[in-house]
Write a protein that binds this DNA or RNA. Structure first.
Lengths: 209, 209
DNA sequence: GCGTTAGAGCGACAACTGTCGCGTTAAGAT
DNA sequence: ATCTTAACGCGACAGTTGTCGCTCTAACGC
């Protein structure tokens, strides 16, 4: 969690100095971000507050992370080191339901790191990039769900657009919780999953040729 | 477009004074919001900038609209007076494709009022509320698409969850353009629409009982 | 017309944000 | 152990944000 150097500027970097103090400052700051996020949500997250809580000078935080989005991006990079595994329940419907349940929880929990990252992405290029990468990774990892379903014969045996299937299954959850802001519905994850499976069974994600 | 009084505080309001000057100031400010939005996108939209461009004192803007979200919410209220009609192409697939195309355009156009409103919704309660209302109105209006499809016999003749169908059709467009930030794909609107129709034909949105 | 007062103008203000130059500390190389 | 310098600490700073009390103007009721 603390091994990689400051990931903000990924230039050639002739000679960096990521050891002792630098790593300690990074750990303190990221801890402070987590704590501030927990207390005030993504609204209460300010450079000033993080610096103070971390016991570090404001200028240091500005120099290394630039803005709140940078902090969140780095936090995500640190969290990205823990390896996430897509669910494996034995059926496509079960897998997608489990995936959606996980997503719903990550969006509903207070404070939600996912929501904070989305909010920051509107203002910070770093956050936007980090988020795009996170989406890409997650969906790529989830493609195996579709492969397994194909192998089990749950889907028409034709080339299938796994990515579109995954997006169709998960998008409604994000849409309703993040954009429409409807109250969480415990059946939403399952319903969205079922719909996608239904469409998939009907060949809606078959690739041409 | 200029008739309703300041919509920010919707209290009883013993005696208001929405006439002449007040209406003129509102028009000037909303014009300024549009112009600032056009120039700098939702990033460049500040209370200061709007006030200056409108030729109005900062304090006036703060008092009446509170924050950027308030400005956008009022702009939306003003725009909401123009009546939008859902597409009517003769088929559910055509209608949903047209709807998605419209959505895609509203999200891709620079500057995008829709994106600005979403961004502001993370910080401003007024913007969030305005957005929720917008979603609600739009989806309610679109339910007729599903009713027409049922009448034409395009869908199984059972009680159908029109709202879920509409969300399933449109969510992927928002998801990919706003959250994932993938480059716009001209075929996305059609594909998402087709998927939803396919699921609907398979009875995925049939209501129990 | 005339009086009342909602609402706009005005300037001062504290708080916050982000940047800068410079001195100090301590990583890492020798 | 010693040197070099990346990275942090520090304080000053200009610019921005949001609020407040006051004055003034012009809607609206009569």
């Amino acid at each position: 969690m603390t091994n990689p150097p400051a990931p903000v500027s990924a230039e050639p970097a002739p000679d960096r100095r990521p050891g002792g103090r630098t790593a300690r400052v990074r750990a303190q700051v990221l801890d402070a971000v987590r704590a501030e996020l927990a207390e005030g949500g993504h609204e209460g997250l300010t450079m000033e507050g993080v610096a103070t809580r971390a016991g570090v000078h404001r200028a240091t935080v500005y120099r290394r992370w630039r803005d709140v989005g940078g902090l969140l991006a780095d936090l995500m990079a640190a969290a990205g080191e823990i390896d996430w595994q897509p669910p494996d329940t034995g059926s496509l419907r079960g897998d997608l339901t489990a995936l959606n349940t996980e997503i719903q929880e990550s969006l509903v929990v207070e404070p939600s790191f996912a929501v904070a990252l989305m909010a920051a992405s509107f203002h910070s290029a770093q956050a936007a990039q980090a988020q795009t990468r996170l989406w890409e990774d997650r969906y790529a990892q989830c493609e195996i769900l579709v492969e397994r379903a194909l192998a089990r014969g749950e889907l028409p045996a034709v080339p299938t657009d796994a990515r579109s299937l995954l997006i169709a299954a998960t998008a409604p959850v994000y849409h309703q919780l993040v954009l429409m802001r409807t109250d969480p519905d415990p059946r939403l994850p399952e319903r969205a999953a079922e719909t996608a499976v239904s469409a998939a069974a009907a060949g809606a994600f078959a690739l041409r040729q």
